[in-house]
């Protein structure tokens, strides 16, 4: 009986609602997906020791810069693939900020759960620890809101999969894997173990895999080369820019997490190549994951 009453109330409610305004329960489901996405994507980082330490030790202006850069990034993702009802930049901005909020809240809860946040701690430590986790968590929240439900395939009916948008999605994919890995010591350790020959092989393998992933193998959402297009057209127009994006994002992540301080040019470049390997895979797979 109770159920019937609720159903009637809901349908009556919906009748007075404008079509582009989601019902409250849709919104709650969206929030639930957002939380699930945030946990799914950010838990590996929330359970990484280096990320807790960075929350305390990272220079505040680098952290602030990262938090500011996250905003246009989130708006861009939201506009491109976000929540089903996102059509305008205004809606995109709203969804991005909701995702950011979900990211901050879920990070605060999980970090408290792991006893990494306690009442006696200085405010700077608490805010720093939450802030650094909030960025991957908010990207996760945004992806979760769009991906963990409804079964709608954004790649199929996206109206503007232009060149810039392709490159942007590759950047998001690269950033996503890089945020996971850049804080860990293993990235620089691997680069120190490598000889330049290993670095060279890593570059070539990154490019080959990237090209194979999206442009040769016809994955869902990937480019299908028309039969008369030479393979090197896609290599120059998509794979190499994608790899360059992965390199730049690796460099930014490493710098941001203070892995390059005092390091000279060549070791920094080697570390960038190491991190750009997962970055390249992330960029190439972005069309599959996102």
């Amino acid at each position: 009986m109770q159920v019937d009453g609720t159903a009637a109330a809901t349908s009556g409610d919906e009748a007075t609602r404008s079509p582009d305004e989601p019902a409250p329960d849709t919104f709650l489901v969206g929030m639930g997906r957002g939380v699930a996405g945030a946990l799914l994507f950010a838990l590996p980082m929330q359970m990484t020791m280096e990320m807790w330490e960075l929350g305390i030790t990272m220079e505040r202006w680098r952290l602030a810069l990262l938090m500011v850069i996250a905003i246009p990034l989130l708006v861009g993702i939201s506009h491109r693939i976000g929540f089903e009802d996102t059509f305008s930049w205004k809606d995109g901005a709203r969804d991005a900020m909701i995702a950011y909020g979900i990211g901050i809240l879920t990070s605060a809860v999980t970090l408290t759960l792991f006893k990494l946040l306690m009442t006696g701690m200085p405010a700077e430590e608490i805010s720093g620890k939450i802030a650094i986790q909030a960025i991957p968590a908010s990207i996760g929240a945004l992806l979760g809101r769009s991906q963990l439900g409804s079964g709608k395939d954004d790649a199929e009916d996206d109206p503007q999969a232009g060149y810039g948008s392709e490159l942007f999605m590759m950047a998001v994919g690269a950033l996503f894997l890089n945020l996971n890995m850049a804080p860990t010591e293993e990235m620089i350790l691997i680069s120190y173990k490598m000889t330049p020959w290993h670095a060279l092989a890593t570059i070539l393998l990154s490019i080959t895999l990237m090209h194979a992933f999206v442009y040769a193998v016809s994955f869902k959402g990937g480019h299908e080369l028309s039969s008369d297009t030479p393979w090197w057209h896609a290599l120059i127009r998509f794979t190499l820019p994608g790899y360059a994006i992965a390199l730049v994002i690796s460099l930014y992540s490493l710098w941001s997490f203070e892995r390059l301080d005092g390091v000279s040019f060549t070791p920094a470049i080697t570390a960038m190549i190491v991190l750009a390997f997962p970055g390249a895979i992330g960029a190439a797979a972005a069309r599959l994951i996102l």
């Binding site: 570059i203 120059i236 998509f238 190499l240």
Partner: peptide, 13 residues
């Protein structure tokens, strides 16, 4: 863009 990125990657290699 493709040309510039090709140059960048070539320089790196």
């Amino acid at each position: 863009v493709g040309g510039l990125c090709t140059l960048l990657v070539a320089a790196l290699i």
